[in-house]
Simulated assay, not measured.
Amino acid sequence: MVVLRDGMCPGLEEELLRQLRAADVKTVEDLVSSDIEELARRCSVSYKALFAIRRVLLAQHAAFPVSGADLYQELLSSTAILSTGIPRLDKLLDSGLYTGEITELCGGPGSGKSQVCFSVSVNVSFHLKQSVIYVDTTGGLTAGRMLQMLRTETSSSEQQMEALQRIRIFRAFDVYALLDVLHGLGGGLLQQASIGGGSVKALIVDSVSAVIAPLLGGKQSEGMSLMVQVAGVLKTLAKDFSVAVLVTNHVSRSASGEVQPGLGASWSHIPRTRVLLERADRGPLRRATLTKSSRQPCLLTEELDLQLWTRPESPPSGKRKLPDS
């Protein structure tokens, strides 16, 4: 049995511990198996806060039975769908990015992965008025590019600056720096980023493979362990904080010449949804293929014109062209 202690998870502080012990709730098992509504009344604490603590403890420790009804109610209360700002991609993703889940974009150089990440950032920060965490591992993100895209949405410099302030950018050029950033987000930075800028709804890591792939293979056995750590923290952040996690990944070719996502089979079960981006045959178009999904049939394909910045509600004549990346 795991004894409840101060600081075990956010919100579990000394005063609450005293109240729980007075109610004969002393271990993790005692708490997760209790009637939370009744326990909240006995301890005179918020049901919502106690329920959140219970959910975190369930995720951190050995699995305890949870009813399907509980899981469904939790899903309904915590899931939101975020538009990517690219209508054809939203269609492929069954309306957009889902909070609580990891979505992956994979593709080769120039396939448009970063452009889609920029689009998600601008759409969430400007149209949804919510905050975005953008972790850049390649140095490819610039505030100038974000501003360029925002200028196609509004001529108001004040609105442009407000949207930019909702995008928090972190640089992490190796896997250890990435883990530091992710652990920091779980330890409080995520809530701090929400202050004055709407709650954080999207966490983008562009690219996750850039810092993990160099450590895989050969004699570098710690690479697999580090990849598992990154995956675990991303899943925890997505679920516990109800954010949509978007990551990018490179591709390689198999011995038969087939395009396959990087990081191997061990990583393949991490994203809930995976989209392959490739250059199409016609000019600047990109071909997006759904290769993994729990909602849509796989191998659905859409052509994306990433040079066009389109509001989802705008008619075709409302499309505006962006300069090439």
Rank of each mutant, 00 (worst) to 15 (best):
L4S: 02
D6W: 01
G7R: 05
G11V: 05
E15C: 02
L16S: 13
L17N: 05
R18L: 14
Q19W: 07
L20Y: 10
L20H: 08
A22D: 11
D24A: 11
V28F: 07
V28Y: 06
E29D: 13
D30R: 07
V45Q: 12
K48L: 13
A52I: 01
L58A: 06
H61P: 05
A62R: 09
V66E: 15
A69H: 10
Q73V: 15
Q73R: 15
S77R: 13
S77H: 05
A80Y: 07
A80M: 10
S83T: 10
G85Y: 08
K91C: 08
L93Q: 02
E101Q: 12
E104W: 09
L105H: 11
Q115K: 02
V116K: 12
C117M: 10
C117F: 05
V122T: 11
S125E: 06
I133L: 12
V135H: 01
D136A: 01
D136M: 01
T142K: 11
S155E: 10
S157I: 06
Q159G: 08
Q159L: 14
R168Y: 06
F170E: 13
F170D: 04
A172K: 03
L178N: 11
L179G: 04
G186N: 11
G187N: 14
Q191K: 14
I195P: 00
G196L: 01
G197T: 11
G198P: 00
S199F: 00
V200T: 05
L203E: 06
D206R: 10
D206W: 09
V208Y: 04
A210F: 12
G218R: 05
K219M: 13
Q220P: 02
S225A: 15
Q229S: 15
G232S: 15
V233G: 03
F241K: 11
S242R: 03
V243A: 07
S254C: 04
P261Q: 10
S266T: 14
T273D: 08
E278V: 11
D281Q: 12
P284T: 10
L285I: 03
R287C: 15
L290C: 11
S293W: 08
S293D: 06
S294C: 12
E303V: 04
D305I: 06
L306C: 01
S314E: 13
S314A: 15
S317V: 14
